[in-house]
Each structure stands twice: as structure tokens, then as C-alpha cells.
């Protein structure tokens, strides 16, 4: 366990995540998430789809895979235009914080190469690498983030008992490790082949639809 990992994965790390719900705002409005049990189901699904995919991209970035190729791989794994825009915006915000914490020419180069922002999971992996973290740790941070942000958003949206919500996250923790392991192995394979295809491409079509719907809402509490 590393201090830098705790810092990077902390929900208070100033990288813009607090304003995003990861699709849970639409799920709440649709009545699909309404209590701790339905939240647990939502988070489990999110972890094993977009969480796994993000963890693979982050691990590959931390493992030295070419960032431009990874950014294209992230685009290919993000069909929703709204989610692409969100991911790039969050990537830019994360890069700002990461460059302040762990100055590194690779991060400067990423900012110069992607003025509109690189995908958040790719930035996360490179930030982890700049912080001296291993690919497995980058994957774990991505997996953690894929459930932690929406859980916090749900606490605010539904006024759920925070002890129930944190207990849901605690029960998911072993699955986070499993997802991070799978992502790290896939990333190592991608690096070995110098090809992105072994990276996880698990998708959640409903989250894509939710994101598109959410971006058209007039009144909303979260940016995505």
C-alpha cells in the first residue's frame, strides 16, 4: 500500500469528480436506484463494466503503453458523445491536479498533445505512473473511483443513510480487487503485444443512454 495511492484515490482529491454522478442521477430519477440494495446492484454493474474498462486503460497507461493509442482505445470504448466529453473534461481537470502533485515531463507532454483533454482513465494511469505507483495500483484507483463517486452522489440525491452506503462500498471492496487484478493482467498483455485489443471493453449500454438523456436535462444536480 502506498501513500500516493491513497492521495490519488481520495474523493477529496481536487480533480472535479465531486460534480459528477456517474449516471446515478438518471437512475434515481428513473426509480431504478431507490435504496441501499438497488444502489449496490447499480454499483456492482458499473464496477464490472465501465469500472473494469477504465481500470484496464489506467493500468496500461501506468504500464507505459503509448498514451495516444490508449486515448483512441478509450474513445472506441466510449460510444456516448456525452460520456466522451465528460471523460475528456475530467481528464483535463485530473491532469491539472496531477501536474501540481507529481511534476513529470510525460504529464506536460500529455497536456500539450491533448489541449481538449485526454480521457480520464488514461490520465489517471499516467498520473499514477508519475506518482511512482504500479499498474495494479492505477487499476485499483480506477475501480475505486467507478463506484465511490456514484455512491457519494447517491447519498446526496436520496439522503440515504451514509452508514448503509459506506457498508455497500465495503462489501464491494473484494470485487474491486478482482476487477483490478483482471484489468492489470489484460494491460500487461496489451503492453506485451503493443496492441490495445486485449484491454477490457465491457460496456453498459444503459449508462450510455442515461448519459445522453442527462446531458439534455434542463434541471440537474450533477454535471453528468
Amino acid at each position: 500500500m502506498s501513500g500516493a495511492l491513497l492521495l490519488l484515490a481520495d474523493g477529496r482529491f481536487p480533480a472535479g469528480g465531486h460534480a459528477h454522478s456517474g449516471g446515478v442521477e438518471v437512475a434515481v430519477r428513473a426509480g431504478l436506484v431507490k435504496d441501499a440494495d438497488s444502489l449496490a446492484a447499480f454499483l456492482t454493474g458499473r464496477l464490472h463494466t465501465t469500472g473494469l474498462t477504465a481500470a484496464g486503460l489506467a493500468a496500461a497507461a501506468a504500464d507505459g503503453f503509448d498514451p495516444t493509442g490508449l486515448d483512441e482505445a478509450a474513445d472506441a470504448r466510449t460510444p456516448s458523445p456525452a460520456l466522451r466529453a465528460t471523460s475528456r473534461r475530467l481528464g483535463r481537470q485530473l491532469l491539472r491536479a496531477a501536474r501540481a502533485c507529481w511534476p513529470d515531463p510525460v504529464l506536460d507532454g500529455l497536456a500539450a498533445a491533448h489541449p481538449g483533454g485526454a480521457h480520464q482513465s488514461v490520465v489517471l494511469g499516467l498520473a499514477a505512473r508519475a506518482a511512482g505507483l504500479a499498474p495494479a495500483e492505477a487499476a485499483l484507483a480506477a475501480a475505486h473511483e467507478s463506484v465511490n463517486g456514484p455512491a457519494t452522489a447517491c447519498t446526496r440525491l436520496l439522503g440515504l443513510d451514509p452508514y448503509q452506503v459506506v457498508a455497500v462500498l465495503a462489501r464491494l471492496a473484494p470485487e474491486l480487487d478482482t476487477v483490478a487484478d483482471a484489468a492489470t493482467r489484460a494491460a500487461a498483455e496489451a503492453v506485451r503485444r503493443q496492441d490495445a485489443w486485449p484491454l477490457p471493453a465491457a460496456s453498459a449500454p444503459l449508462l450510455d443512454l442515461f448519459a445522453e438523456r442527462h446531458s439534455a436535462w434542463k434541471v440537474r444536480l450533477f454535471a453528468s
Binding site: 481536487p14 469528480g17 465531486h18 460534480a19 454522478s21 491539472r96 446526496r156 450533477f222 454535471a223
Partner: peptide, 21 residues
């Protein structure tokens, strides 16, 4: 317009990244 996820003070004080952008 910047959206603040139920926490206007966070966006101007603790995590200013969206406003800086």
C-alpha cells in the same frame, strides 16, 4: 455556467478545477 453536484462551496473552494477550466 458550471455545475456543482449539490455542493456550490466545493466548486469555489475545495476543488476549483471546473471553475478554472
Amino acid at each position: 455556467a458550471v455545475e456543482t453536484g449539490c455542493c456550490p462551496h466545493t466548486a469555489i473552494r475545495d476543488d476549483i478545477s471546473a471553475n478554472l477550466e
